[in-house]
Amino acid sequence: MNDAAIKIVPAGNGGNGKGAARRELRISALRYNPQEPSRSPRMQTYELEEADGMTLFIALNEIREKQDPSLQFDFVCRAGICGSCAMVINGRPTLACRTLTKNLGPDITLAPLPFFELIGDLSVNTGKWMRGMSERVRGWLHMKDPNPDLRRIEERMDPDLADRVYELNRCIECGCCVAACGTARMREDFVGAVGLNRVARFRLDPRDARTDDDFYDVIGDDDGVFGCMSLLACHDVCPKDLPLATQIAFMRRKMVTIGFK
């Protein structure tokens, strides 16, 4: 009975009577492997039949299993929460795993995120960059007491403030904001909206021992908050709808105050 129970009915002739013809998708992906520099970058097009509920996660895996085992891309959670699969889809950086093909035309163009080190094809090294950024902005909570007594009741925190910190903490470091950023094109050391948001998150957190002077030391220059040109693409593309424009503007005001001090 278990075998039958898990059988997935092929779509197209399913229960709700929608028997519409399946679309033929043409997915063009940028191909380039830096390990083989002799082969120059090129676009390669794969054709496949669309399935119900098909996401780019499903489509790309089907291509790799049935057509081209060498195609490189990254997925981990495939549920829109880990940030691994950001790529440029029809010109816009976003998460591939939760992009349904039915929301796109039959011709789909995929490219790796710009700015980050290319690993191969659609795979980029966001992890390496994020760690470097985190080290530069010192992106961790600086404890007031590094050895709290764990047997004791925890320190209190205002519930609304905790919720606000959580909001900024929802960043998944997918890299879309940096890939879409005008400043990042010009300044390779720019910490990006992701970095500024991290600083804003710790600045908001009453548990962090740092002052605005400390934060000024890490983002009070053109590679930090003064590098932002307010083009706001970061805000537009953020898959988690983080209030990036507001946070950057707020941080800039705070840092200007320190700068003039």
Binding site: A162, F202, R207
Partner: peptide, 19 residues
Amino acid sequence: APKAVRELAAWGVPWSRVR
């Protein structure tokens, strides 16, 4: 486990709080 939650609270996890 309670010590773990409290350690993480000290390290920065934005736990939802009682109102």
